[in-house]
Design a binder for these strands. Structure first.
Lengths: 134, 134
DNA sequence: TTCATTTTTGTAATCATTCTAAATTTATAC
DNA sequence: GTATAAATTTAGAATGATTACAAAAATGAA
């Protein structure tokens, strides 16, 4: 699993440095739609010299190379997701958790988009998750 | 039209001050999903003493009272929309224009959301608009 | 090793948004 | 109408996420 990450990065035109591998590893293992700070706080424990700028640089590189997508469901901080497949998100306003929503691909086909060339699709819901509905 | 805005504000529990009326008027007349700065730059021409903080205050009040919704389709700035009905948005990465997408209400019914209580729904697409596809 | 390139780092700069307290305006009571 | 209280607006400072930048460190090739 982990030994495949360097090849995956290379396949996307990214030289697999130690930091880049660790950031990608975080994304795929946690699957928690983290902010830059969440990634930084975790990785800095094992890489004491890590700079937050590096995390920004790496994530921007991932976005550019199509290895991750940006999620703007939180108004303050950008979140990131290594799952680049077409899916939606739900954020609970109580526990702040972010859930993946697997939706029928047919649901993403909108007739009113004729003539538009779509590069990104974002579907977000906010409210209360089942646990927080009590 | 315009003389109805005070009543609409009152109906949402908002005292219709001059500034609030002007901000709401901007939203419904332009329908351009503006940022705070866009609203400010326009209104300050007729209200020279206008403060940008006031525009922020008024928009946050509108959000709270359900008179407008927040659109996070732009990564840098929050956009606002006085159309609070269920609809999607498209942002052209070339001309930066934001389009409304009227979608079949049935398309918003997602079976995988059982148990979730939805308060907000956001659907965004990014890419090239028909004009910018050449 | 040496040199060139890439990656990482720390700090400063930027910029949207919020905080705060004072000033102004509006509404109310007398 | 004046005085007082409450609501609104204002200006400037503070916050906080993100980017810019230039130096330092690491990597790779000859």
């Amino acid at each position: 699993m982990i030994e495949r990450i360097p090849n995956l990065l290379r396949a996307h035109g990214i030289k697999p440095s130690h930091h880049r591998i660790k950031v990608y590893e975080y994304l795929v293992e946690k699957r928690n739609h983290p902010s830059v700070d969440m990634i930084y706080q975790e990785l800095v424990q094992n890489i004491p010299t890590l700079s937050k700028t590096t995390v920004y640089n790496i994530l921007n590189l991932f976005l550019e190379k199509g290895l991750a997508v940006m999620i703007t469901i939180d108004e303050n901080e950008t979140r990131y997701d290594a799952d680049t497949s077409l899916h939606g998100h739900f954020r609970c306003n109580n526990c702040q958790g972010i859930y993946d929503l697997r939706l029928d691909p047919a649901a993403w086909e909108w007739e009113s988009l004729d003539g538009f060339e779509i590069n990104e699709s974002h579907l977000y819901f906010k409210g209360l998750c089942p646990e927080c509905c009590h």
